[in-house]
Amino acid sequence: MIPIAKKIRVLIAKPGLDGHDRGAKVVARALRDAGMEVIYTGLRQTPEDIVEAAIQEDVDAIGLSCLSGAHMTLFPEVVKLLKKRKSGDILVAGGGIIPEEDVPKLKKAGIKVVFGPGTPLRDIVAFFETAGKGA
């Protein structure tokens, strides 16, 4: 029998209306290969859907992927709703086509880290590993 150990659980979610989830799937796969349990919820989710899923799944962190340009609205909304639901301890990371000048604003809104195009997968894995260990 495989010994039971605390598993890192991550929600990978696509808020908003774009249909491009190749990146989200690549990240989900990489986190799986790093030994994490990854819940992928599919396309076109509202921030409310995402937060509800994160709470029911008791995840350590959420990875949001958005390629539609609506990240400035959608990402901070997720953080806000988490806090409202007593779940501000769930860390939020963002990814996608996000202009350089938006990154500081997103971080100020509570997004821990923003992964743009070309980010090595090992950096993304490392973030979620740290998030899962409560560090």
Binding site: I2, K7, A28, R29, L31, R32, D33, A34, G35, M36, E37, V38, I39, Y40, T41, G42, Q45, T46, E48, D49, E52, A53
Partner: peptide, 21 residues
């Protein structure tokens, strides 16, 4: 669960997205 890494992709929610909140 992967027998190699212990990781998993849990995708059943995708099909159950209608129920939302």
């Amino acid at each position: 669960t992967s027998p190699y890494t212990g990781g998993a992709v849990l995708g059943d929610r995708i099909r159950m997205a209608d129920t939302g909140v």
